[in-house]
């Protein structure tokens, strides 16, 4: 169980830091954080695990995505040019 979680986690973390698309990186970050909370449950730290999901998985990636949406210009510009024709 621990090995499965840690394998998913490491793959998720690697994909987070290497993926080209920012939103996909956020998605993989979510996977990583949720699997870490699984490891906390294996370590009998249920409260930390749930707080991890609540705060880390619930709020932090949403904040990050919010930042991505607000600072990403590319998609919007592309769609504007495609529309102007």
């Amino acid at each position: 169980m621990f090995l499965v979680f840690s394998a998913v986690e490491i793959v998720g973390a690697i994909l987070t830091v290497t993926s080209k698309k920012l939103v996909r990186a956020a998605f993989w970050l979510l996977i990583t954080l949720i699997t870490i909370s699984g490891i906390y449950i294996l370590l009998r730290a249920e409260f930390v695990a749930l707080i991890q999901i609540l705060v880390y998985a619930g709020a932090v990636p949403v904040l990050l995505l919010f930042g991505i949406m607000l600072t990403r210009k590319k998609m919007l510009e592309e769609s504007e040019t495609s529309e102007a024709k």
Binding site: A13, T16, V17, L22, A25, A26, L29, T32, L33, Y56, V60, L64, G67, I68, T71
Partner: peptide, 9 residues
């Protein structure tokens, strides 16, 4: 933002 994610990790 990716750097921020790495800090989170």
């Amino acid at each position: 933002i990716i750097v921020l994610m790495s800090v989170e990790i």
